[in-house]
């Protein structure tokens, strides 16, 4: 399939290229909506579509004013700041708790393993609106509604399943005799953890942390219910903007976030390669 043998019949040849074109169209469908907002975010007008000047590639049709607005508008700046205050704390909490639990779960003898696993994974499965509604009432009662820590805890719990999954994946190939070897040489459990286990599962931990970070950084449903004005995050501001006044500043923000995802994606890919190298899994 990947390459066409020279003896291929005309029909096979036609099908081969048709198939490639279909796949090309699907790839186009996947990335076009994301890429199209980048040129649009440089629109000199307050419109959401290409102006004739833009299509004619006239420099007058382009401007960075929406970016200037994003970086000078106090609403957006506050939202950006809030996002960067909430996401790292939530990530830290999720990563520490999630990594410990993943190590625990990877032990050979864990009672009620599948039940525990189901509970720990549930934040990823339960529809967000149900979680948000529940948290809204419950956190109100304990005084966490509308507080920084309320949002952080909610975001952390939503991020933990990702940490568990990625760390568990790196632990699958982990040879437990390494731990025993370290222990037999007199290393305590803590030393063993940091000297033997940690370096090997680190890629999983970091990619889990990235997932937890992006979960918090993108999350809007829970924060809409749980947050108050002082916790307004970037997605919240975008949601309001989309529903109420679609200013093209949203497209500038969106473009910045696309660039951010490209960076995260690259980091993840590098980590994945490193992890495979460390665990001796050679790519096929």
């Amino acid at each position: 399939m990947s390459s066409l043998p020279s003896y291929a019949s005309p029909l096979q040849r036609t099908w081969h290229y048709t198939f490639r074109i279909i796949c090309g169209l699907i790839f186009f469908f996947l990335v076009f909506p994301i890429l199209v907002i980048i040129p649009l975010s440089f629109n000199a007008q307050d419109f959401f579509t290409f102006t004739p000047e833009m299509l004619a590639l006239d420099p007058a049709g382009y401007s960075t004013k929406h970016y200037v607005d994003f970086f000078t508008n106090p609403d957006w700046q506050k939202a950006l700041k809030n996002s960067f205050m909430i996401a790292p704390t939530a990530t830290l909490l999720a990563t520490v708790l999630g990594t410990l639990a993943a190590i625990g779960l990877s032990q050979p003898h864990v009672p009620f393993r599948s039940v525990i696993m189901a509970i720990l994974i549930s934040p990823m499965i339960v529809p967000l609106i149900i979680a948000a509604a529940g948290m809204y009432f419950f956190y109100s009662r304990i005084g966490l509604q509308g507080t920084y820590w309320g949002v952080v805890m909610a975001h952390a719990v939503l991020g933990t399943p990702f940490v568990i999954i990625t760390v568990t994946a790196t632990l699958v190939g982990f040879d437990n005799s390494l731990v025993r070897a370290a222990a037999s040489m007199g290393a305590g459990p803590i030393t063993t953890f940091f000297k033997v286990q940690m370096p090997l599962i680190l890629p999983g931990v970091v990619s889990g942390a990235l997932f937890a970070f992006i979960t918090s950084f993108d999350e809007v449903v829970v924060v809409l219910f749980l947050g108050s004005a002082s916790q307004k995050t970037l997605p919240w501001q975008m949601f309001i903007g989309l529903r109420e006044q679609i200013s093209p500043t949203i497209l500038a923000v969106a473009s910045i976030m696309v660039v951010l995802s490209v960076v995260l994606l690259t980091v993840l890919e590098l980590l994945r390669r490193r992890s495979e190298r460390l665990r001796g899994v050679t790519p096929a």
Binding site: Y136, F137, S140, Q145, S228, A229
Partner: peptide, 24 residues
Amino acid sequence: IINDESSNEAVAKLRAMNEAGNVT
């Protein structure tokens, strides 16, 4: 002065706060 833009959901949120006995 802290501005909160929740007037749209004010009745719902006030009821939840009242129920919880924690008016912010």
